[in-house]
């Protein structure tokens, strides 16, 4: 084994760091915003009576969008309008959980399953719809993220940025069906966040993230994303406690 890959003899804190230049962001959530003081270089889309506005799409494309898909497609669309087409990381811990739970309930009751709901509940369904709407021919991935939460999307984006100059990250989440809520962490709102990220050597707002490994006891299963709350309150740094790690993040204008 090369010396550089050898494990340290005294493993103490394992910290991994990522940094990006944030070119633009766009957020929608199903609650009216409390404040107008938000992070720079971005926008909050209108609350629009709990359904993100997708009137830019023809009706035959709109009709298949769940509330979650509407939110994700709306924020991705806005970022592409501003910065053009680019490779994309789609992220959601639980995806179209309302759809697949309904399918499982139907199967349990030995009833028929809706073919279109089935096609729309797979984890890359929203990614596929969004890339069709945006006529994107560039690569995308659809991540579930496991215990890293939405920060998994930033790890993937950092990897992609080794090959391409800019990456779109689209994260989206909705409340889980009640039967699941005792078992895993879930969002208590429906929201979608898109970010246009470029390499940190470019000028602009620096988004830095640092992961520290370690078990975090007693994480509350129902919690809003601290990052989303921070963006909406123009809080420029903070941290998120996850099951097996915590992530510190900051946005600075240097």
């Amino acid at each position: 084994m090369p010396a550089s890959l050898a494990s340290p003899t005294t493993p103490t804190r394992q910290v991994a760091q990522l940094s990006f230049t944030l070119k633009h962001w766009c957020l929608w959530q199903d609650q009216a915003p409390l404040t107008h003081d938000i992070w720079p270089v971005g926008e909050v889309l209108p609350f629009n009576a709990k359904a993100a506005d997708v009137s830019f799409l023809p009706m035959m494309q709109r009709r298949r969008l769940s509330p979650l898909a509407r939110a994700a497609c709306a924020v991705a669309w806005q970022c592409q309008q501003k910065h053009g087409d680019m490779p994309t990381v789609f992220f959601s811990n639980h995806g179209e959980s309302q759809y697949y739970f309904e399918i499982l309930e139907n199967l349990a009751a030995q009833q028929g399953v809706s073919p279109s709901r089935f096609s729309l509940c797979v984890h890359n369904a929203i990614a596929g719809l969004s890339s069709l709407h945006r006529a994107s021919f560039l690569p995308y991935v659809a991540l579930a993220g496991g215990t890293e939460g939405l920060f998994a999307a930033f790890i993937e984006a950092a990897g992609m940025l080794l090959d391409v100059p800019q990456v779109l990250v689209v994260c989206y989440e909705q409340p889980l069906p009640a039967d699941y809520q005792a078992y895993v962490a879930y969002s208590n709102t429906t929201w979608a966040l898109a970010m246009v990220l470029v390499r940190s050597s470019e000028a602009g707002y620096q988004l830095r993230l640092a992961r520290e490994a370690g078990q975090v006891p007693n994480t509350d299963k129902s919690q809003p994303s601290q990052l989303i709350q921070a963006i909406l309150a123009n809080q420029r740094h903070g941290q998120s406690e996850l099951e097996q790690s915590h992530w510190c993040w900051s946005l600075t204008d240097a």
Binding site: M60, G112, V113, S114, P115, S116, S119
Partner: peptide, 17 residues
């Protein structure tokens, strides 16, 4: 109307039901 192949499956399920 512009329906697609997934719609055809959906319509089949609905007619059956």
């Amino acid at each position: 109307l512009g329906l697609d192949s997934i719609d055809a499956l959906e319509l089949g399920v609905a007619l059956k039901k």
